[in-house]
């Protein structure tokens, strides 16, 4: 595949939940694409719709109450929203691998690692039990589980969190997927393990030329592994840019707020400056910009006009009225 054609192209995605308390617009109009070998980061606070974006791609939105009400998800040129359940099943776990946040709860506690790996492989490949077992051993080796032969028949509770996440990754990679979605894969792990896991992602990506969607709320993770970043707020993109550019020339007040909330462990200053206010309640979003109630630079017009995503620079998009006409940055 030509490296410029996107592997995945998400167009104007809207995923809503229809609950008794009203409609929750968990994802409300996002566009992004992932190229082979590229890592796209999706960042945002809790509840901004990151996981729902991932689940929408896999067609795993619980319905009811959830529904993809608009948009397209083009994987290798074909719209996944037009596919039947059976066709989607052949893509999940084979073409698209997924790693979840909490390795302690993401593996089935009553089945051995072997069973959980072999069933994945055999669901997609025409392998004998023996072949699937051999492939499992190979994968465990690949992700760095020591003594895989012995560990294959162990149960999840016999592994540490970091080891379990390696197993999750091994399962996600079982069928050589072209896209890997990792939903906060290191959040539940401590820092050293986190570094090892991120390293594993980079290594696997190089070997398999996968596209990766790295969902996180940790800008540290973004700076380490992502080529491009989408910052999400209340189901919408706030800012979209190449990683380096975002750190150097981030523009959206929310992005800047996120950057300030990274703890700076320097002798003079080691205080965590979180963004004021609480994440928005998606049941009753304000009329204008959804970030307005928390924004330090809020203007009169912000309360009435919901801004569009505008390109302020090459490949740098911002959804904020501050940049509607001028291209100059606001310094905080």
């Amino acid at each position: 595949m030509d490296t410029d054609t996107p592997l995945l192209d998400v167009v104007n995605l809207h995923t809503h939940f229809f609950t008794k308390a009203g409609t929750v617009k968990a994802v409300d109009g996002i566009d992004f694409s992932v190229k082979p070998g590229e890592t796209l980061g999706i960042v945002g606070e809790s509840g901004s719709g990151k996981s729902i974006t991932a689940m929408s791609i896999l067609g795993l939105i619980p319905s009811p109450p959830g529904k993809i009400v608009d948009g397209g998800i083009y994987f290798k040129g074909e719209n996944l929203l037009d596919k039947k359940e059976k066709q989607l099943r052949q893509i999940r776990g084979k073409e698209i691998g997924m790693v979840f946040q909490d390795p302690m709860t993401s593996l089935n506690p009553v089945f051995t690692v072997e069973k959980q790996m072999v069933e994945t492989i055999r669901a997609h490949e025409n392998f004998s039990k023996k072949q699937a077992r051999d492939r499992s051993l190979e994968l465990l080796n690949l992700v760095g589980i020591p003594d895989p032969k012995k560990r294959l028949t162990s149960y999840p509770h016999e592994f540490s969190g970091g080891m379990r996440q390696r197993i999750m990754i091994a399962i996600a990679l079982a069928c050589n997927p072209s896209l890997l979605i990792a939903d906060e894969p290191t959040t539940a792990l401590d820092v050293t393990i986190q570094a090892q896991i991120l390293d594993l992602f980079r290594r696997m990506q190089r070997e398999l030329d996968m596209g990766i969607i790295m969902i996180t709320h940790d800008l540290g993770v973004v700076s380490e592994v992502c080529d491009r970043v989408m910052v999400m707020y209340a189901g919408k993109p706030a800012e979209f840019s190449e990683t380096k550019n975002l750190f150097d020339h981030g523009k959206h007040p929310y992005t800047l707020g996120l950057m300030n909330s990274i703890p700076k462990i320097t002798p003079e200053k080691h205080k965590l400056e979180a963004i004021d206010g609480v994440p928005p309640d998606l049941h009753g979003l304000p009329k204008g910009c959804s970030f307005a109630p928390r924004c330090k630079h809020v203007m009169e017009s912000c309360l009435n006009i919901d801004p569009e995503l505008k390109e302020v620079d090459n490949n740098h998009h911002v959804r904020c009225l501050l940049y509607e006409d001028s291209k100059e940055a606001v310094s905080t």
Binding site: L58, L60, R89, T105, S106, T120, H124
Partner: peptide, 14 residues
């Protein structure tokens, strides 16, 4: 509602 059921679905199981 458990995570491992979501994992099983994401693996493409019937």
């Amino acid at each position: 509602g458990q995570d491992y059921i979501r994992t099983a679905a994401a693996k493409g199981l019937k």
